[in-house]
Design a protein around this nucleic acid. Structure first.
Lengths: 226, 226
DNA sequence: TACTATACGGAACGTGCGTTCCGTTTGTCA
DNA sequence: TGACAAACGGAACGCACGTTCCGTATAGTA
């Protein structure tokens, strides 16, 4: 994941008392661990909200103090909840990826293989457009995405690859483009539209990529309908 | 242009004795100024070569010491030749842009409007593929490209826009995509291919974008041939 | 060969930023 | 309400990196 700043790398993660992020989100916790104090719960949520907005608009490289400030909290508090800037970022990206993962899985039910794939690509763009954080993370190909993210990315890729293969088989998409490349193109499209600002622009850009992905020359294999 | 690191901004450019980069490149110099010492000329070239390679492979955010090291020189020397990291980067990008500018202009002579545009897009990709520096610069839309670069970019955009308009008129390209968006898409394609590494991959990616740009629905206007 | 302007090298400086530390505040529970 | 663990705030720390400074080396010249 490697947050842009070089500094972040190789500092050694702190080993202090983060009883917070035991597994899932917000509130649920194993019976042994004590209950989180009410203010802590609220503040954690604030941090996530602030980070989400700031990372989205200004990219991952914003100083963490800005996030703390936006949340109306001190940096210390922020670090009590997330041991690392990267951990905070990851928490946000994971949430987004979860949404996308659901979308992919839903599309596996679709009958039109081509539409299934392309509408998923549009969904990615929807999640990523004007969210610098996301496409900074994904655009860099997940080469160095870590831990939770990397597992999710793998799962996502597997799922998307199914969609892709079906679309290829159905003759709805050219066969010489890998899933990674597809991701890259879509992220590129998002980035291309960033300056335009509007969500509409990014959808238009993605549409262009989709058009490029449909193999204009290949004709649907005989014997298949969708 | 804004080299990634925040630190770079707002330092105030040094005003010291840079009699070096009077106007153009390497050697030519106004008659009044003294001649550069031979070692200085050689070292300047070394710096440029080292920077070109390092920026290309590792992006603009590499520490400047790395460049100096690669050139086999001290940082002080480097700063004697280029007052700022940004200035060094600019010198390199300008050279690339010049090449591209020539290419655009050459394409204005072409008869096939569509091919003229698309082969220029391929040329951009050729210059940018595996050159992180360039598409970090261009991909970020030239929003904050400065000085020389910004003028060149403007000139480039004007020229490309001519190609684009012709292609649209000839029915070889959809009409709802701006020149900036086109750039963005091509840069995105380059980035998408970066992981694949091969130049071939990036050409394939660009081809996809080109396919997307040809308006699949629009039919050529009657009365035009190319 | 000696002299000097020019150029070089690299230690040192300043800043931004991630992270840590610790004294203070506050929610929770009896 | 009092006691105490939990949580907070923000000053302080350390590092990376851009840039500057200045003592030393050397090309050019007479």
């Amino acid at each position: 994941m490697t947050v842009k700043t070089k500094t972040a790398s190789g500092y050694g993660l702190r080993v202090s008392d983060h009883r917070v992020d035991e597994s899932g989100d917000s509130d649920k916790r194993s019976p042994t661990a004590r209950r989180m104090r009410a203010d802590a719960v609220k503040n954690r949520a604030r941090i996530l909200a602030a980070a989400e907005e700031i990372f989205a608009t200004e990219g991952v490289s914003v100083p963490i103090d800005r996030v703390a400030e936006k949340a109306g909290l001190g940096v210390g508090t922020l670090y009590r909840h997330f041991p690392t800037k990267e951990a905070l970022f990851e928490a946000i990206v994971v949430a987004r990826l979860e949404t996308l993962l659901e979308t992919v899985k839903a599309q596996r039910e679709a009958t039109d293989a081509g539409e299934a794939l392309f509408s998923f690509l549009r969904a990615i763009a929807g999640q990523a457009s004007a969210k610098r954080d996301l496409f900074e993370a994904l655009g860099s190909a997940g080469i160095d995405i870590k831990s939770q993210c990397s597992e999710m990315m793998d799962e996502m890729k597997r799922n998307v690859d199914v969609l892709r293969q079906r679309a290829v088989d159905a003759g709805a998409m050219r066969s010489d483009v890998s899933t990674e490349e597809m991701f890259g193109l879509v992220m590129g499209a998002c980035q291309a539209s960033e300056h335009a600002g509007s969500e509409a622009a990014s959808q238009r850009m993605v549409e262009i990529v989709c058009d490029g992905l449909r193999s204009p020359t290949a004709t649907p294999l005989p014997g298949r309908t969708s």
